[in-house]
Computed example of a mutant assay.
Amino acid sequence: MLKQQRVAYILAELEHLYPETPVPLDHKDPYTLLVAVLLSAQCTDERVNKITPLLWQLADNCFDMAKQSVDAIQAIIRPCGLSPQKAKAIKGLSEILVNEYQGEVPQSLAQLEALPGVGHKTASVVVAQAFGEPAFPVDTHIHRLAQRWGLTNGKSVAQTERDLKRLFPRESWNKLHLQIIFYGREYCTARGCDGTVCPICTTCYPNRKKPKVTRKA
């Protein structure tokens, strides 16, 4: 398959498998999504979804969260890992939202990335899923699959994001990044597929005999 053929096939196959793409992280508004995505760093969505209801009992908006101590936040989010840094970031970004944004989550990538604990991927998820702005959040799983599917040579997550944005229509980005995540979890896991097992890998590269060695981000 030529690259454009792979792109067309992947788009069609993922749309067939995942016509609906609910956001995996439970949330009720941009603020709770922002916090949930921050917590998901090096933590499963399933675990985050078990912890956030407890956190929302403490505070489910930036005004109330800004009043909490870092220790109180950390005590709840400890199972998510990296809790000292995450607790400090949650309190810090909540204070900034109160003091600088009248309690509203900003809609620009640059403003989001300036918040404590918010990197480019987290900001991209928020603008895409909370505000509907075209973005293509790339995590390590999407980075791995994009390499297996021959869509990037994968020197970095940033490069993979640029390559995917160039290959796929802008209007598909927000849905597609979730579809790739869903597919990776179900068919093309880090250990369950090495580029020679899952349906998309074998269709795109039917003659691939050796495992696809992917570059880590």
Rank of each mutant, 00 (worst) to 15 (best):
M1E: 10
L2S: 13
K3D: 00
Q4E: 15
R6K: 12
Y9P: 05
I10L: 13
I10Y: 08
I10N: 09
A12H: 03
A12Q: 13
E13A: 11
L14N: 06
E15M: 07
E15P: 00
E15A: 14
T21P: 00
T21G: 02
P22R: 00
V23P: 01
D26Q: 15
H27F: 05
D29G: 07
P30K: 07
Y31L: 10
Y31G: 02
Y31I: 09
L33E: 08
L34K: 01
L38Q: 10
L38W: 08
L39V: 04
L39W: 01
A41P: 07
A41L: 11
T44M: 01
D45F: 08
R47W: 01
R47A: 01
V48T: 08
W56S: 12
W56E: 13
D60C: 09
D60G: 09
D60W: 03
K67G: 08
Q68F: 01
Q68Y: 02
I73G: 01
A75M: 12
I76N: 03
I77E: 06
C80T: 14
G81T: 03
Q85N: 15
Q85Y: 06
A87D: 09
A87N: 06
K88C: 06
I90K: 09
L93T: 02
I96E: 11
I96Y: 07
N99W: 01
Y101D: 04
Q102T: 09
Q102K: 13
G103C: 08
G103E: 12
E104F: 02
E104Q: 12
P106G: 03
L109A: 04
A110H: 10
L115K: 04
P116S: 10
V118K: 03
H120L: 14
T122M: 09
V125N: 11
V126A: 06
A135P: 01
A135H: 08
F136S: 04
V138S: 02
T140I: 11
I142F: 00
A146N: 04
Q147M: 10
W149I: 12
W149G: 09
G150I: 12
L151K: 01
T152Q: 13
N153S: 14
K155L: 14
S156C: 09
V157R: 02
V157C: 10
E161A: 10
E161K: 11
E161C: 10
L167T: 02
F168C: 11
R170V: 15
E171I: 07
E171H: 13
N174V: 11
K175N: 14
L176M: 15
L178Y: 03
I181Y: 00
I181K: 02
Y183H: 09
C188T: 04
T189R: 14
R191E: 15
D194C: 13
T196Q: 12
P199G: 08
I200A: 10
T202D: 00
T203H: 14
T203C: 04
T203M: 05
Y205C: 05
P206W: 04
V213G: 04
T214A: 01
R215D: 11
K216T: 15
